[in-house]
Design a protein around this nucleic acid. Sequence first.
DNA 1: TTTATTTATCGTAATATTGCAATATACAAA
DNA 2: TTTGTATATTGCAATATTACGATAAATAAA
Lengths: 108, 108
Amino acid sequence: MGLTKSEIFTDVQNEIASLAKAFAHPARVAILHQLFKSNSCICGDLVDEIGLAQATISQHLKELKNLGLIKGNIEGTSVCYCINEERWEEMKEIFSSFFNQNIKTNCC
Amino acid sequence: MGLTKSEIFTDVQNEIASLAKAFAHPARVAILHQLFKSNSCICGDLVDEIGLAQATISQHLKELKNLGLIKGNIEGTSVCYCINEERWEEMKEIFSSFFNQNIKTNCC
DNA sequence: TTTATTTATCGTAATATTGCAATATACAAA
DNA sequence: TTTGTATATTGCAATATTACGATAAATAAA
């Protein structure tokens, strides 16, 4: 086994899980932190700032890009990565609905 | 390899990643959904409502409990699980700071 | 006490994720 | 064209996660 049974869950549940995976590794959290605060969002700078190999950072960037949370812009030989603001807002909405549910019963 | 290098990241980055893992599997999202909306939060009910084996649900509940997001209350032979509201609010604050950062530069 | 019920844990198999060296690709500069 | 620079991809090894049957533990009911 070890295979997530996506088909038994709702679309919303699966989407929350997919998006949460983006934040479920500190390297990706660090990348996102960097993209928010830094003036330079060049891939190579991220490799320098975060202490992981270039191949590893590239892989994490790919995952974030696949989820639509960041965009990449080719500038000559380097690539500039930025937060995809529209998708970021969409993501925030999804988590907001999940986080702000009302508790019906709480017996503990 | 395959070992996350936690020591090169900040405490905040590691905590966000740990908490995000709670939501990074649809079964745990489904469990939390159920605890919010349901009148009954008995472990056995969760097993019935979500289509996974009892051992699997128990394991997911344990992870949520380890993160402090839920509490378990023994009632005879069964166990009632509920959202830990204080911790839930704390978690929301942590994600809120992360989600609502200001973008300094956005060149894409 | 015996039996049934409920949940937790153990052991195991399978898939997923992480990390990186090596290499490929793409473009710029000489 | 050749060389250098930056990023992506491939292949592989190692750890982590997921799932569940079997079983243990704890309590309730008979």
